[in-house]
């Protein structure tokens, strides 16, 4: 599914958070939204699936206005993985992932809902913990379970808010490999992320946000020393290694 974001604006209690953001995202794109804390990355994600409603501008999903989708229709097209989730819910992994079938379930999950859930658990290698309480898992496993729940919605678009935060480097690679494979399969993926090295290594498209506006966007060649220094107001140098870039921090401006 392609997503067209046109001139959207959003404000929390009168403070503008997003200003005139416009972007076209093609089917199968793996998009990283990068930018300093408070630049509006999470807000932008939430505007794309209508968790927050924009004050101005439109979001078109496959040329159809976001607002003309019913909330259930939208949940079958776009899934969202929040940044952090409270742990109060004593559900097991299977029930947690089955929750992703919610848009398809009226009263009782069908056998096909159970099959779909089981297949996703298998695909993500979570079978062995299927009956475990979600609160007893490590951070990495839990993140994979939440991605599995999003996949159970069978969406075309995945929105993820810092999916690699709190993960060790091995789990970061695991999660990003998984997302990359999904985007190669035609899923459109948009994630807010802080790690520029990972974004440039895995993503096909980068959006830089600064103070709620698009600072730069394009392929990973927009990761230039000048852009990054201006975006974060820091000093860095960039090292190239086998065609991939590594940011070396030098200091503050």
């Amino acid at each position: 599914m392609k997503i067209q974001i046109e001139n959207i604006e959003f404000s929390y209690n009168g403070t503008p958070v997003l200003k005139n953001v416009t972007e076209n995202i093609a089917k199968g794109d793996f998009v990283a939204i990068v930018g300093p804390n408070g630049s509006g990355k999470s807000t932008l994600l939430k505007c794309v699936n209508g968790i927050l409603s924009t004050k101005k501008g439109t979001v078109l999903i496959d040329n159809k206005n976001l607002e003309s989708y019913s909330s259930n229709e939208l949940a079958k097209e776009i899934a969202y993985v929040p940044q952090s989730e409270n742990k109060a819910n004593p559900l097991n992994v299977f029930d947690t992932v089955l929750l992703g079938r919610k848009p398809y379930i009226n009263w009782k999950p069908s056998d096909s809902d159970l099959e779909i859930t089981a297949n996703i658990l298998k695909k993500l290698h979570l079978e062995h913990i299927a009956m475990k309480n979600i609160n007893k898992l490590s951070g990495g496993q839990r993140q994979c379970v939440f991605i599995a729940r999003a996949l159970a919605q069978q969406p075309d678009v995945l929105l993820l808010d810092e999916p690699t935060a709190n993960l060790d480097i091995r789990h970061q690679i695991e999660v990003l490999n998984l997302l990359k494979a999904l985007s190669d399969n035609g899923h459109t993926i948009i994630m807010a992320v802080h790690d520029i090295n990972l974004a440039s290594r895995y993503c096909s498209k980068i959006m830089m946000l600064k103070d709620g506006a698009i600072f730069a966007s394009g392929a990973k060649d927009i990761f230039t020393t000048e852009n990054i220094e201006k975006l974060y107001d820091i000093k860095i140098s960039i090292v190239h290694e086998n065609g991939h870039l590594v940011i070396v921090p030098q200091g503050l401006n």
Binding site: N49, I51, S71, I78, Y80, P82, E85, K102, W107
Partner: peptide
Amino acid sequence: FSQSWNYKSLQSGDELAKSLGVN
């Protein structure tokens, strides 16, 4: 009883529940 799936979604946070199509 008819709302049990909605309540289950709310347990995981308002934003997640919204993304699952819950008002």
